[in-house]
């Protein structure tokens, strides 16, 4: 899947966690030119829960608090000291902006932050899918062995049957395998929906 690249940030809400100075002034003015609105007060947990913020600028030179929110954040860096930079890495800033802040570079920082963040979010989902599959692998192998034994078929055929059955029920094959093993006291029914599953697994 080719990811959509976002280049318009109109309407996005930014939190600018910088002291009142020239840097903040240039940054806020440029963000407003780009169609973003700047969050004036210090946000609290409810703002994050309610999704009232879309991007944050944090001051890498200060002891910034890590945001408890899954939004892109941009580290504004003045001191290129390893101790400061290490925190930028640990906090996984989605992009950076150098001080003194100039109008040039702000669009780039936003562009990278939003698109990089979107890529990371997709990767988190993909990773979750992969771990689920990895965890379910043992159950799948066991279920294949059981079908091979019970129905006297090859491993390919056993896998094919499981796949068809799990697709019919619209559940991942790993989950189907786990259910199958849990219900293994009765004989398996690969076609259609087993009576005892019908209650819980309506599509």
């Amino acid at each position: 899947m080719t990811p959509q690249i976002r280049s318009n940030f109109r309407g996005a809400r930014a939190w600018v966690a910088l002291p009142e100075d020239q840097n903040r002034e240039v940054l806020v003015r440029t963000l407003e030119r780009l169609g973003l609105s700047v969050f004036e007060r210090c946000p609290d947990a409810t703002d994050f829960v309610a999704g009232r913020l879309d991007v944050a600028f944090v001051d890498a030179d200060q002891d910034f608090m890590m945001l408890d929110a899954d939004i892109p954040h941009i580290a504004v860096i003045g001191m290129e000291a390893p101790s400061r930079l290490a925190r930028v890495v640990r906090h996984r800033a989605s992009s950076v902006l150098m001080k003194p802040v100039r109008a040039t570079g702000i669009f780039t920082a936003l562009f990278l932050a939003f698109n990089e963040h979107a890529i990371r979010q997709r990767e988190v989902i993909e990773r979750a899918n992969l771990s689920r599959r990895a965890e379910g692998r043992r159950a799948v192998v066991k279920a294949i062995l059981k079908i091979m034994k019970d129905d006297d078929v090859s491993d390919d055929e056993a896998y094919r049957r499981m796949r068809v059955a799990s697709m019919t029920r619209r559940i991942p094959i790993e989950e189907f395998a786990a259910q199958t093993l849990a219900a293994s006291t009765s004989s398996m029914r690969l076609a259609g929906t087993a009576a005892h599953e019908r209650k819980t697994k309506q599509p």
Partner: peptide, 8 residues
């Protein structure tokens, strides 16, 4: 009106 970043 000029819109150099095509925001609007």
């Amino acid at each position: 009106r000029p819109d150099p970043y095509l925001v609007w």
